[in-house]
Amino acid sequence: MLEINNLKSRIGDTEILRGLSLSVNAGEVHAIMGPNGSGKSTLAQVIAGHDDYVVTGGEVTFMGKNLLDLEPEERAREGIFLGFQYPVEIPGVNNAYLLKAAVNAKRKHQGLGEVDAFEFLKVAREKMALLGMDPKFLNRGVNEGFSGGEKKRNEILQMAMLEPSLAILDETDSGLDIDALKAVAEGVNTLRAPDRAIVLVTHYQRLLDYIEPDFVHVLSEGQIIRSGDKSLALELEEKGYDWVREAANA
């Protein structure tokens, strides 16, 4: 589904991704871990198409298409969803309105008509109930004055409504209380399907207790230096990153 080959990217003059390769197939869940500043969010942003990040080398294909040729909104409509590490506030714009505009943009791209307003609200309320979100969040400004955890839940709500083929969740677990973590994990697990893939960026094993990954990767200084199965995450939790780095440098 997603093929990243020797990807290099910089912001300003600093090279951040330095030849990164990763292959994600439909039906898989990948966890990406790694120290602060190693480039995890950068990778997510590059996949989503943020133009602050200049791609200086390598290829990225998504379901056979050259992803780097597409505008961010086209990537989204093709089925890529990024749950932001720091979701932005858009005061004055109704949360439900943004959600509906997003759903309709995707439907239009798929040649479908606009979603029925009544049906849309019904589905949104159901998903919110699942996530333990009060329906009144629909009528607030997008993330406006939301607490950290509420913002993260709102990201998951958007994901649930958009039903992406590839969901990249950048530290969606940070800042969540235990109940929220369970609810979010449940939201993600509901989305798990043979034709979908999920990439979790996280610092904590805790999330992986609820969402079991097929693969775990360690990102360090812009490269994936080790990949393994879920046991790798446990090992990292226990021993930290140094031993992986040492092993990689050896």
Partner: peptide, 14 residues
Amino acid sequence: SADQLFYCRQRGIS
């Protein structure tokens, strides 16, 4: 802000 626009675009909105 550029971040607000990118956020919307990431959701498929032009």
